[in-house]
Amino acid sequence: MDGDDHDHDSTEGEGGLRKIIHVDMDAFFASVEQRDNPELRGKPVAVGGGGGRGVVAAASYEARSFGVRSAMPSVTAKRLCPDLIFVRPRFEAYREASHIIRGIFRHFTPHVEPLSLDEAYLDVTDDVRGIGSATRIADLIRQRIRGETGLTASAGVSYNKFIAKLASDQNKPDGICIIKPGDGARFVAGLPVRRFHGVGPKGAEKMARLGIATGADLAAKDIDFMRANFGSFADYLYRAARGIDLRPVRANRIRKSVGGERTYSEDISSGAGLRAAMEHIVDIVWERIERAEAKGRTVTLKIKYTDFTQITRAQSLLANIANKTEFAATGQALLDELLPLPMPIRLMGLTLSNLEGAQREERSPDTAQLSLL
């Protein structure tokens, strides 16, 4: 890869441009279930609770075609897809597959940053195996995952993390997408802003009000406009819209917390409604905790009242939260301390923090440089 291929010096690593792969398993939980139970293959499958207060943790592609999505209430999913088959999560099976997959990653590079059980960034700038091409490495990884686990993965190959992650979603399922350094800004320009990591539904709505629908619209705004409208998020958006991401792949990245929250279309005030909301949030957040393999001992409850005032309450235990039941009980205890509520709530959230740190991994010395393509 020669120096004329890139748009910005800021995309360079120590020895030139980085070569980053983002690997994302296809419908991971549901695919494991379909692999292990042939009767589920080709059918709409949701992993999660199928009861009245259950939540979809993951959906097969057959279910997604009906609009079923993760974190969706099970009753909504069933309404969208009456033939939906619910399967209880088996996290041990998912961890076992994830362990094999991470071993495959580390065969090709020590620089692996897992984001969850089913996705990771790999920095293959150093050609540990002398393969000569980041794209070839991505192909070999996908082949080995299929051969050793019976599962499919999609990959994005590019010069930074932001674009590699976007690219891995481009040709799902079982696809690969390569974005060359000279094409990064152009690729981002054509994407809807909702595809940008960190831009949620509310952020996208705000951007729409400002006349911003695509990466190109974002790139047309100067930094002063961005900072005036998006505060601390502005610099990230400004760089991302230009295909720039300076973050390195961190094999020793330490996650600080795992959480989730929900804003309700109707304010909640009753005891039964609060209990249902708590069960819903516990389901969503515990699935994320399991997916991230996080272990922690502090639970924080976040409440936003109907007048938009917000409070948090936290409890730290002497040992890590042992299971979902203890997590739910701790969250409920925090809520009970606030009862009776002074007014209805419009938002509830839970977070697990004080997490155990990840093991550090040593950088591999004396490795050759690698071309992207």
Rank of each mutant, 00 (worst) to 15 (best):
R253I: 14
H99N: 13
K324G: 15
Y159Q: 15
D267G: 05
P73Y: 01
D245K: 08
F105K: 11
I104Y: 03
Y305C: 06
L372T: 05
G260K: 00
F86C: 00
R90C: 10
D127I: 11
S316Q: 14
W286F: 00
L151D: 02
T135I: 12
G42W: 07
L338K: 09
R129P: 10
F91L: 05
K256A: 10
R247Q: 07
A216R: 11
L334T: 05
R242C: 04
S364C: 12
G16V: 07
R146G: 12
T298E: 01
P344C: 08
R247E: 01
D174C: 02
A27C: 13
V75E: 11
L246F: 13
G271I: 06
A216P: 10
T309Y: 10
K180D: 13
I85G: 00
R142W: 09
D9C: 02
F28T: 00
A251F: 09
E33L: 01
L370P: 05
I254M: 13
V45L: 06
C81D: 08
E12V: 13
G156W: 08
D307K: 04
A189E: 08
I321G: 05
S65W: 07
V282C: 05
G184F: 14
P44R: 00
T325W: 07
A272M: 09
S10F: 12
A240V: 04
G52S: 13
T300L: 10
D174P: 08
V193A: 04
P38C: 05
M348Q: 05
D224T: 15
R35Q: 02
I101N: 06
D366W: 15
A204K: 06
I21A: 00
F225S: 06
A319F: 14
T149K: 04
A208P: 09
P201V: 09
Y236P: 09
R88G: 11
G273A: 00
A329C: 08
I345D: 02
V87T: 04
N229G: 10
A189L: 12
G13L: 06
A63E: 03
G15T: 15
E39G: 15
T300R: 12
R136K: 13
I141S: 03
K206G: 12
S232Y: 11
I145M: 09
D235W: 14
A30Q: 00
A164F: 00
V124W: 09
G175M: 10
I141G: 07
E287D: 15
L17G: 14
N323L: 03
E293R: 15
K202D: 07
R18V: 10
V112F: 01
R41E: 01
E362A: 10
C177Q: 13
L372F: 07
G203V: 02
L350Y: 07
G190C: 08
L246A: 12
F196K: 09
K180M: 13
L115M: 07
D118S: 05
A292S: 04
D174K: 02
P181W: 11
G147V: 07
I311D: 01
P192A: 00
S116T: 09
V45K: 11
D283G: 08
S316K: 14
S316H: 12
I289H: 00
S158Y: 08
G42L: 01
C81N: 04
I284L: 04
L84C: 08
Q310W: 09
K78W: 07
K43V: 03
R69K: 11
A155K: 03
T149N: 03
A277N: 12
E279Q: 12
I21R: 10
P192K: 02
H99F: 06
